[in-house]
Amino acid sequence: MFKHILLPTDGSELSEKAIQEGIRLAQSLGAKVTGLCIMPEKHPFFYETEIPAEALEQIAKQTKEAGKAYLSVIEKKAREAGLACEVVYEVTDYVYEAIIRVADRMGCDLIMMASHGRRGVKAFIIGSETQKVLTHSKIPVLVFR
């Protein structure tokens, strides 16, 4: 059935839950998992020129560290569950495109994600990135709430 599950994460609590469930599913199917963390390319400030280069570098560094930390959570959980696991770190502002591209590149046959990520449930009934992945993915998507 499903042999390779993609677990995208943005480090949010909701995506953590989806990862846990994804690992459980992979375990029951004997599938392998790939953890994916995508971080934004641009920093949250509009006037880039006013920010000192060092500060920008610092932000980029911290972003990368956070991303790697999120991925290490997936690696650890997968290791504990005895699953084969790879992790991919990408930097882009087009999150859903990257999710679909990585799923394709890695040969995943299922994408497992939370209904909402970091931006939460406040403004949308279904998270915007999840929505876009659902709209554009040819691979089945399992949505956790």
């Binding site: 469930e21 659902l134 993915s137 040819k138 089945p140 998507v141 399992l142 949505v143 956790f144 709430r145």
Partner: peptide, 9 residues
């Protein structure tokens, strides 16, 4: 839905 949904295309 509060139950997970698997969507096939």
């Amino acid at each position: 839905s509060t139950i997970p949904v698997l969507v096939y295309r």
